[in-house]
Amino acid sequence: MILSVAGIQFRYNGRPVLRDVGFELDRGRILAVLGVNGAGKSTLLKCINRILRPKRGVVLLNGRDIASMKGREIARGFGYVPQQIGPEPLSVFDAVLLGRKPYIRWAMSEEDYRIVERVLRLMHLEHLSLRPLNTLSGGETQKVLLARALAQEPDVLLLDEPMSNLDPRNQMEALRLISHVVRDQKLCAIISIHDLNLALRLGDSFLLLKDGKVHTITDRQGLTPAVIRDVYGVEVTLTEVAGYPMVVMKDA
């Protein structure tokens, strides 16, 4: 067990967004967080690493309560990739180098540069490393943000809709990279995602949020048409195409 989340409650302007959300996650596993728009998926991710302060709830990372950790300690445990960013003027190298911030005191070390170089190569971003981030395409930007999170050397990746801005080719690359990194580095990842087919490809387990509460936590078998109808309000049929699981929406 690497991550254990229990009883998360969060209110926004007095309106409850999350009500008693909890789950547990092992190393090398990917949890897909599903739910309709506004169900609280993004909020849940931000509550896990205290970008937002939940009203109640406990997050244990490797058995330690993160409420007792300093900001930089939490940042060494969790790599967060936001859903969207404004025009970031930093160069790609600088942007990824920022991922080392939780580790530095005064200046970057050789080791920090080595890690950044390795991550840039892994993500095939070498040729872009000196370009300002705000001149890149959506897909390239998304890769840089993921690279920064990897440079943090976290135990847990928190990815907020990492594939929503990507074309099919970039989606497949991101899919492959995320799966590979999680298995290879024995991390765990929590990914909010609204494309059910991508979720099926990526996730080992699935957390379905409805009205700020956990509707179901399940593995692939438990993701039935009945559950999907209940959460999303659409009729679907589950099938398999060329060995891949598929969700097909039916006319109402």
């Binding site: 940042a75 911030k101 939780p102």
Partner: peptide, 15 residues
Amino acid sequence: NAMAAGEEVARGLGV
């Protein structure tokens, strides 16, 4: 620099 990357990213980096 972290602020330049956005407020939430900065928080996520422990700023």
